[in-house]
Deep mutational scan, measured.
Amino acid sequence: NKFNKELQWATWEIFNLPNLNEEQVKAFIDSLRDDPSQSANLLAEAKKLNDAQA
């Protein structure tokens, strides 16, 4: 299933962003679980936040 692979990839990527704190990671993962179809958008937002906090 396409969404499942995207969800797994986005989850792994978010867990490995070095500049997000635990609460931010949890919030993004919760959002992914709530709406897996938004995984690409949520990953992009997480990466933006990660870069901003570098």
Rank of each mutant, 00 (worst) to 15 (best):
N1V: 04
N1M: 01
K2M: 13
K2T: 05
F3A: 15
F3R: 15
F3P: 15
F3I: 14
F3E: 15
N4T: 05
N4S: 08
N4F: 14
N4P: 12
K5H: 06
K5Y: 05
E6T: 05
L7E: 07
L7F: 08
L7S: 04
L7K: 02
L7M: 06
L7H: 03
Q8A: 15
Q8M: 12
Q8N: 06
Q8S: 05
Q8E: 15
Q8G: 05
W9P: 02
W9I: 13
W9V: 10
W9Y: 10
W9A: 14
A10I: 14
A10W: 08
T11W: 07
W12G: 13
W12I: 14
W12T: 15
W12P: 03
W12F: 13
E13I: 12
E13F: 13
E13Y: 14
E13M: 06
I14M: 03
I14T: 02
I14F: 03
F15I: 13
F15E: 15
F15Q: 15
F15M: 15
F15D: 09
L17M: 13
L17Q: 03
L17S: 02
L17W: 02
L17H: 02
L17D: 00
P18E: 09
P18M: 09
P18Q: 10
N19M: 06
N19Q: 04
L20K: 00
L20F: 01
N21W: 07
N21A: 06
E22N: 11
E22T: 12
E22W: 13
E23D: 15
E23K: 12
E23Y: 09
V25R: 08
V25F: 03
K26M: 09
K26T: 10
K26P: 00
A27W: 14
F28R: 00
I29E: 03
I29T: 04
I29R: 02
D30E: 11
S31F: 10
S31T: 08
L32A: 04
L32S: 01
L32V: 06
L32M: 13
R33Y: 15
D34S: 13
D34N: 09
D34I: 10
D35S: 10
D35Q: 08
D35A: 07
D35R: 12
D35F: 07
P36H: 03
P36Y: 04
P36K: 02
P36E: 03
P36R: 02
P36D: 03
S37V: 05
Q38Y: 04
Q38V: 06
Q38A: 15
Q38K: 14
S39A: 14
S39F: 06
S39P: 04
S39T: 12
S39N: 05
A40T: 12
A40H: 10
A40K: 13
N41D: 09
N41M: 11
N41L: 13
N41E: 11
L42T: 10
L42M: 10
L42F: 09
L42E: 01
L42S: 02
A44R: 08
A44W: 08
E45R: 05
E45D: 07
E45N: 07
E45H: 09
E45T: 09
A46Y: 03
A46V: 02
A46L: 02
K47W: 05
K47H: 10
K48M: 11
K48F: 07
K48V: 08
L49V: 08
L49G: 00
L49Q: 06
L49F: 05
L49M: 10
N50H: 03
N50K: 01
N50I: 01
N50T: 01
D51V: 07
A52W: 09
Q53H: 05
Q53R: 05
Q53W: 06
A54G: 09
A54K: 11
A54D: 09
A54I: 11
A54L: 09
